[in-house]
Design a binder for these strands. Structure first.
Lengths: 352, 352
DNA sequence: CTGTTAGCGCATTCAA
DNA sequence: TTGAATGCGCTAACAG
């Protein structure tokens, strides 16, 4: 910058102004400065600027410890995608916070390494905000927004879908189709989505006067498990059941897809013998055999809204964003769901 | 930091040393300093440190303009995943470079906004390195590594899979199974992977003495297209063909899956009438009907290796990394491929 | 082993 | 409209 100033015959402060506040400098000198900058290949140093102004345009994304691409399928990746795009459109950059797995006990890497260069944070899914002293993200005034998971109780603005309500509606629909017994493929025990979705199932049963035991529960181990694997295991469990529920409900699509595939391979007819409901709305569900009915997680909308919420938080002038924004899930009704089969004893005749 | 120094009764430089080089300071004072830091909730300012030492621990990932989650499926997401993990394990953070779509003409946002705070860059897939003057990433000595796409010709160390060779091998296998006519579902025209993979197909035909026209080519528009959609369209095209090739080869799994699903829905038997080969190895392929044979892209290995390569580049002491690292694709042989059906005229009898 | 000093590159006072 | 001076928080010489 000093070189530019020298070449243009001005002071560094004028260069600074010419670049940042084009209005506050003479047009002729501005052009001279720009030419000099061009000639020298000058690129402003963001680190210095950040230090000086005490802020930056970098937002930190904190990801769940489970990977981006498994677990809840591509959900995290899709959200990340729109978060990054929205921030980028507003001149911000996204920093992926390292998972502090390696030196977990010692110091919280994301906390320390990026302090002072991060302007705000977005917690995606079950991401954990590193704890820490009063100047940690949580305590020290770093604006934080949560997406996918509701943390409004902790005072963190959250952008979520109402999984519980969505699941409730879908199960009521199954009940309307005559289903009275359910097989629930649980997600990881203790996880937010598992709680919400199984809660929605329970709600629907209660609302219909069905007992809790109308739903056989499977899986839900505490350790992380691959979704497809869970689905296969669940299928084996369902096949081994003496009295098989007529509807299977998976906490997430990966499990539903693997379940569907496995039970059909063993001779079960879907939806003839068994209806299958997934959750998340991954695109590939439309190409399953039969196509999978599922509840779409509005990932793009969630990501965009979360980014906008954080931006509003950063903008002192803007009104405070709501503590909780709820976006609707969307039922994608496909062929994996149908009316419950007639009970065997009563089954009269098959079509010829 | 000054506050900490004051509270501990030392100079700021001692605080700095106590935190950065624990060995070079008296144990007692070090403990006093740590206590003071703890009490004050002190968090070092990375921006200031970066400015002072003239470097940082932030690596920039440049993503392709097409999204993270479509196009080549989750490939980009999976690579990003391991890149982030590997860097994190080595104390680095990952900055997602914004796509300079909005102000494309004007100035290259990723170039300018993060200058001085980025230590190196990883180009993922078809990502474009922003052009620019001599101090731009390309010209100005910013260490760069490419992954998924070979840029070694431009002097950029690249970590890739040998798609061409893998495709060649798989097609030779199909030829060995008696297939003599192929239906190729092309990826986006002009894309690196499309060129490599269709090249592999051509290689195999040539090696077997088959004419180029043994492969009917479909799709490959210049505009970006959703993989599933391409697959559906390709299926319609195949179904409309008078003389249908006995093997379909898709440039990527999304298309293969949608193709498979659509032709079966229209009554074609896979692999009875038609064998289907995908590319990428997405996990869901194992649960297709029938399970999809595909060539796995070693995403995790690629990501890790790319990160390591960049790290080696940053480490002055380390030997220069190879300009090109090639990792093997893996054939995942599944039920979507079988021997070519006998020609209709000759078909003698069906099993009862 | 510790304190003093200087400066990384920039934005912003305050004068001129 | 411009220039000179100051300091953001930190690290690295160099003395002591």
């Amino acid at each position: 910058m000093r070189d530019v100033a020298r070449l243009a015959g001005v002071a560094t402060s004028t260069v600074s102004r010419a670049l940042a506040q084009p209005g506050r400098v003479n047009e002729a000198t501005r052009r001279r400065i720009l030419a000099a900058a061009e000639q020298l290949g000058y690129v402003p140093n963001a680190a210095a600027r950040n230090l000086r102004v005490g802020t930056s345009n970098i937002i930190m994304a904190v990801l769940p410890e489970t990977t981006i691409t498994y677990g809840t399928s591509q959900i995290v990746a899709e959200v990340l995608q729109t978060v990054a795009a929205t921030l980028s459109d507003n001149g911000f950059n996204l920093l992926i916070a390292g998972r502090s797995r390696s030196r977990a006990g010692e110091q919280h890497i994301p906390d320390l390494a990026v302090s002072g260069i991060v302007r705000g944070a977005i917690l995606i899914g079950s991401a954990e905000l590193p704890p820490g002293g009063r100047r940690s993200p949580a305590g020290g005034g770093l604006p934080v927004v949560s997406v996918l998971e509701d943390r409004s109780a902790a005072g963190i603005p959250s952008v979520i879908a109402d999984d519980r309500r969505a699941m409730r509606g879908a199960v009521l629909r199954l009940i309307g189709l005559g289903h009275r017994s359910f097989f629930y493929i649980a997600g990881p025990a203790g996880s937010y989505h598992e709680a919400e979705r199984s809660g929605g199932l329970a709600d629907a049963l209660a609302a219909s006067g069905l007992p809790e035991r109308a739903a056989v529960r499977h899986g839900g181990s505490h350790t992380f498990q691959d979704g497809f694997e869970s689905g296969v295991e669940a299928a084996r469990a369902w096949l081994a059941l003496e009295s098989r529920p007529t509807a299977a409900i998976a906490c997430w699509d990966d499990a539903a897809i693997a379940f569907l595939s496995t039970v059909r391979q063993q001779g079960a007819a879907v939806p003839g013998d068994l209806s299958v409901l997934g959750f998340d709305g991954v695109p590939v569900g439309a190409f399953c055999e039969p196509p999978l009915t599922t509840l779409r997680q509005p990932t793009a909308e969630l990501g965009a809204k979360a980014a906008e919420t954080l931006l509003a938080l950063l903008d002192g002038g803007a009104p405070a964003p709501p503590l909780r924004t709820t976006l609707p899930n969307q039922l994608l009704p496909r062929a994996s769901i149908a009316a419950a089969p007639k009970r065997r004893g009563r089954r009269t005749s098959r079509p010829p």
